[in-house]
Nucleic acid binder design. Structure first.
Length: 225
DNA sequence: AATTTTGTCAACCGCACGAAC
DNA sequence: GGTTCGTGCGGTTGACAAAAT
C-alpha cells in the first residue's frame, strides 16, 4: 500500500511537532523503549505515524543530542569523513556523538559543500596556470566511491605505470574533497578520454571521479564508467 | 517599503534490507 | 520461497527567515 494512501486513510498529522506531542512521545518512549514504532505511535495516542515518531525521537528528542552550532573540530571531522566515505551520513554521525545524520547532512549541504566546491575551483585554476611537478597517480576502484578500500589505495605504493596520461597538476594542500565533475569542462577541452594504468579508456563524459589528496599524491578513483 | 531570491533545517518520502511469519 | 512488517538510510521538499534587489 502506498505511503501517501496510508497517511490519508489514517488521517495522520503531518508537519511540525507541537510541544505537547513531544511530551507525549517522550513519555511513551520512556515507557515502552525505542522499538516497534507503529505500536508505540498508537500507544502514545498521537495521530502520527510510527515513522514520523521515530524520526522526531531520533533527530530531536533523544537524550544527549547536541542542538547547538557545529564546532570547528566537528566540521573538520565531517569534512575528513565525507572525503573518506562520501554521503554515508549515518556512518559519519556515529563518529560525532550527539549529532544526527540529518543534522550532518543538512550542515554539509548548506555549509561545507560550497567550501569543497570552492577548493575544487581553486584547484582548477591551478590546473590551468601551474607548471609545477606534482604527479597525479590513479587507481580505479570498481566499487562505489565510498569504498572501504581507500586506506588500501592510499597505502599502496604507486609506480610510474599507474600514472594517468594527464599533464602534471598542482593542488594546494587541503583537507577538502573535490568532485572532478567540476573539472570536466577543462578536461573535455584537453582530451575526450582517459587512459588508465589498466590499459582501458574511460569516457570523461560518463565517468564520475572522486578526488582525495595527500601532501604527496593525488588519488583518482573512477566510480562509474 | 515591497517584492524576490537565497539559505537553512525539520520533516517527508521512497527504497532497501533483514527478521518474522 | 513468498509476503508482511519494522527499521534505517539518503535524497528531496516545503516552510520560514534573512538577504538582496
Amino acid at each position: 500500500m502506498a505511503y501517501q494512501e496510508t497517511m490519508q486513510e489514517k488521517n495522520w498529522r503531518k508537519g511540525p511537532w507541537l510541544e505537547q506531542e513531544d511530551e507525549q512521545l517522550n513519555a511513551t518512549v520512556t515507557r515502552l523503549g525505542e522499538r516497534r514504532w507503529d505500536a508505540l505511535a498508537k500507544a502514545s495516542g498521537l495521530r502520527r505515524s510510527g515513522k514520523s515518531c521515530r524520526l522526531r525521537w531520533m533527530n530531536y528528542l533523544r537524550p544527549n543530542l547536541k542542538h547547538g552550532l557545529i564546532s570547528e573540530e566537528e566540521e573538520r571531522i565531517i569534512l575528513q569523513l565525507h572525503e573518506q566515505w562520501g554521503n554515508k551520513w549515518s556512518k559519519i554521525a556515529q563518529r560525532l556523538p550527539g549529532r544526527t545524520d540529518n543534522e550532518i547532512k543538512n550542515y554539509w549541504r548548506s555549509h561545507l559543500r560550497k567550501k569543497a566546491q570552492g577548493v575544487a575551483f581553486d584547484a582548477k585554476q591551478d590546473l590551468v596556470t601551474s607548471d609545477c611537478n606534482t604527479v597525479i597517480t590513479a587507481r580505479t576502484s570498481n566499487g562505489d566511491c565510498m569504498s572501504e578500500k581507500e586506506d588500501d589505495i592510499r597505502a599502496t605504493s604507486v609506480d610510474s605505470s599507474d600514472a594517468l596520461e594527464l599533464p602534471n597538476f598542482a593542488l594546494a594542500d587541503s583537507p577538502y574533497e573535490a568532485r572532478v565533475s567540476d573539472w570536466m569542462s577543462y578536461w573535455a577541452n584537453e582530451q575526450s578520454r582517459l587512459k588508465l594504468h589498466d590499459g582501458n579508456c574511460y569516457s570523461l563524459e560518463t565517468c564520475f571521479c572522486y578526488l582525495a589528496w595527500t601532501s604527496e599524491t593525488i588519488l583518482i578513483r573512477i566510480i562509474a564508467v
